[in-house]
Amino acid sequence: MIPANFNYHKASSVSEAIALSQELGEEAKYMSGGHSLLPMMKLRFATPEHIIDISKIDGLSYIKEEGDMLKIGALTTQTEMEHNALLKEKYPILGDAIWLTADPSVRNVGTIGGNIAHGDAANDQPALMLAMRATVVAEGADGTKSIPIDDFFHGFYMTALEPSDVLVEIQIPKAKKGSGGAYHKVERKVGDYATAGVAVYVELDVDGVCQEIGIGLTNVSAVPMRLERGEALLRGQKITDELISEVGQVASEDCEPESDLRGSEAYKRSIVNTITKRMLNKALERARQ
């Protein structure tokens, strides 16, 4: 399998990337890690005329806490995140997901920005970002914009990014005392896209009351999906086993899976129910530590 012909352009800076994109027009595509885009090009499902390589742009690979945000540069690879001490200590949910994403060689190249910007509900990071209420920072022709994650995913492979926008940073509210998150997906074998996945992020107050809750679902809807009804049930409540069961049930009802090679719709709904409960418990356990 060989991609169709295209012209490669390397951008050394975000502004150069944006200028290139504007100059080359709609037939230009950004490439970061390339592990989503290039396979599609090899299968000739995608035939862009121009590829703008943004992976060599300096200064977009970092993980830091600043103010009340955790900031991750868009070009940070999944491997860099996997081995990062700060994330290991305070944001284990990210490690949960990365461990289950593709395989180590792909993670050496695949970036957090690419995983989100691809706009694919089968990718793992969108559910986490929904759960953690991330903000996507992008630079475009008209300057920098911050897009709340709830406004980011528009449709199948479609996002709020304009064609020339470069996703530069992910911002996640800093982990507070009493917060915890967890992610798991059921996969047919290691490295597979999710049959179904659930990300949970919870914040408890000193009395164990749920102050904030985020639940994101992977690959059970056309667009990465937040479980709003489930979150509403938990917010402001002391989370009991009964509530957890109820939220699992709600998750299975509200998700929108389709039957395919990974299993029937009913099976996927059931899996969503189970993982939602398990991840709620795991997130609570971490929050209470």
Partner: peptide, 8 residues
């Protein structure tokens, strides 16, 4: 015999 088949 996959988990999905067992579940069904």
């Amino acid at each position: 015999i996959t988990p999905a088949k067992v579940w069904e």
